[in-house]
Write a protein that binds this DNA or RNA. Structure first.
Lengths: 155, 155
DNA sequence: CGCTATACTCCAGAGAAATGAACTATCTCT
DNA sequence: AGAGATAGTTCATTTCTCTGGAGTATAGCG
């Protein structure tokens, strides 16, 4: 049966989410810790305070999150030379093998089929991804902002 | 600078995850509730017990999860006619507008650029998605199975 | 050089959600 | 029918993580 492209998109999105969850489980991290580690690995060393808003928690909670990441060996705390009140959270390279190990297979398998694409096809894929990312970001912003934070329900 | 396709993939995956989180926040659901609702909407009515393994929690926890989803109006409990011990969790259509509202804009924006693709390009996109999903699923399975559940760390 | 603001940590308390055992109802097998 | 298995709920307890306020150290302004 021909699935619509919308269905394909939904499947992809589900697969991505499950993959992320599997990584977190494998690393022994909860959602907040995993997210924090992702931010640090993508954006480089970050001061503790910068993590709080992105994780959606107060600064005092970040202390605990970084504590756990540090304990597990994924990050280190380093003093910021330019402001000694600040603590920079940096990825601990000693854990890098764990991470690259996880992504090595992924990259290999992705390359296995992507390498068959010619230039034109590659351009199409890139266009698809770029536009999808753009749309997802705008939709995320819409959902996040846009007045009422969903149905109010006592929690 | 030209980003590699790997980088694009990473961006896409991040955008997807953030979008999912935004939906959950908007619906007022935590991760487990959101996941359960997703399963029910995709797979149709499910007995409570079938949710437990997929959510990675015990059956008794599912009771609470379904309670909260029901309270919020996203699902209903219905007796299974063929086995009266069983309770089927079905999506509540009265909430459908909320959900479709969220996805209407997304679909429209996705179509806005995808409609420009010709047949050949569309085939490329579908191929990319299908293969990516296949790879992600196999990698998820690898991470989930594969002996040791990550670094053991007292929790 | 004070004074105020900022960055982070510590701690006690609160809240959310999962666990596991006990219990009820129902099904299935013989 | 009776025994045992299965589905789901309830409840007490435990675990985990966040919050918010207090405390310490440093920065920057006048």
């Amino acid at each position: 049966m021909g699935e619509s492209v919308t269905d394909y998109g939904w499947e992809l999105s589900t697969a991505v989410v499950l993959f992320h969850e599997a990584i977190a489980r494998r690393l022994g991290l909860n959602a907040a810790e995993h997210k924090a580690l992702g931010l640090i690995m993508r954006a480089g060393p970050l001061p503790t305070g910068a993590l709080a808003p992105q994780l959606g928690v107060g600064v005092s909670a970040v202390t605990g999150i970084v504590d756990r990441l540090e304990q597990a060996g994924y990050v280190r705390r380093e003093p910021d030379p330019s402001d000694r009140r600040r603590v920079l959270v940096v990825a601990d390279p000693s854990r890098a093998p764990d991470l690259t190990g996880i992504f090595a297979d992924l990259s290999r398998e992705m390359n296995a089929f992507m390498s068959r694409y010619d230039e034109r096809q590659m351009a199409t894929v890139v266009d698809y991804i770029e536009n999808t990312v753009r749309v997802l970001r705008s939709q995320t912003a819409r959902l996040t902002g846009e007045g009422s934070n969903g149905p109010d329900r006592p929690r």
